[in-house]
Design a protein around this nucleic acid. Structure first.
Length: 264
DNA sequence: ATGTCGCGACCATCGCGA
């Protein structure tokens, strides 16, 4: 069972990259962020042709999230419960697993696209913190269900200095503010495992490189796309990966896919 | 600090968000 998250930075610009990657990586469930289009403009047929159920929560121009699943998925939320929001940043559903699966009958998956939050002295940062507070509250209620649960997506948070090539460059940025990092730690402290950090102590594990100033060529990256695993999922974690070679393709997204493989 | 994208308004560049 392979679960992935990928911020595509416009699904219409990235559909060819995505389908190529789906064919080679063969993930079971994928959370997508930054669709940047309405549901009716989402190129669903190309993805359905590869055997995926496609569930979208789109928005014109900005944001937008989706879940792709090779197993049946029932969407329970479009929009984060308890957080009034005009922006499409949250989608949650329950995947029905094949009979006799090691995880049990279901896997709950939430796809998130956190607000960027810059500049820090603006309402945008307060909005980011409010989103995190609401997600933490909601995650607490989900953990009480004691189901296997993954919250996957673009958190727009650099958790530690090891998650940036040049951490000093991010001082004062909303992605690396003490408050943003503390909020992320508080969410994790509910009992989630950061899948990448649980399986590797390699430095330079990044998921995003800015388009500007030759960031990719200099490996000036940050790790902001995360897979948070509930205890029942963490118990079955086998390996993780970051498909950084996607960033070297023609017309790439500024993010690359991050994935984890589970037993069963 | 900024050497870049993608979108949508509007028709050719520009402002916004990242």
């Amino acid at each position: 069972m392979l679960i992935a998250t990928f911020n595509v930075n416009s699904i219409r610009q990235r559909i060819e990259h995505l389908t190529r990657w789906l064919k080679s990586r063969e993930p079971d469930v994928v959370c997508l962020q930054e669709l940047k289009c309405l549901d009716e403009a989402f190129p669903r047929e190309e993805i359905e042709a590869l055997g995926y159920q496609v569930e979208t929560f789109g928005q014109k121009t900005f944001n937008g999230v989706a879940i792709l699943s090779r197993h049946g998925i029932a969407i329970e939320h479009r929009g984060l419960p308890g957080f009034l929001d005009e922006q499409a940043r949250y989608i949650e559903g329950v995947v029905s697993l094949p009979q006799g699966h090691a995880l049990g009958a279901v896997l709950r998956i939430a796809g998130v696209y956190f607000p960027n939050g810059n500049p820090v002295d603006s309402a945008k940062f307060e909005y980011k913190r409010g989103f995190m507070a609401a997600l933490t509250r909601h995650a607490e209620s989900l953990l009480a269900l004691e189901e296997p649960l993954i919250i996957a997506g673009d958190y727009n948070v650099i958790p530690t200095p090891d998650d940036a090539r040049f951490p000093e460059n991010w001082r004062g940025d909303a992605l690396f503010q003490p408050e943003s990092r503390a909020d992320f730690r508080k969410l994790c402290a509910l009992g989630f495992t950061d899948a990448i950090r649980a399986t590797s102590d390699n430095p330079r594990l990044y998921s995003f490189w800015d388009y500007q100033a030759g960031a990719w060529q200099r490996d000036n990256g940050i790790r902001i796309d995360h897979l948070l695993l509930s205890p029942l999922v963490a118990d079955r974690l086998l390996e993780t990966g970051i498909d950084r070679e996607m960033r070297a393709e023609e017309k790439p997204s500024d993010h690359v896919p991050v994935w984890c493989r589970l037993k069963g």
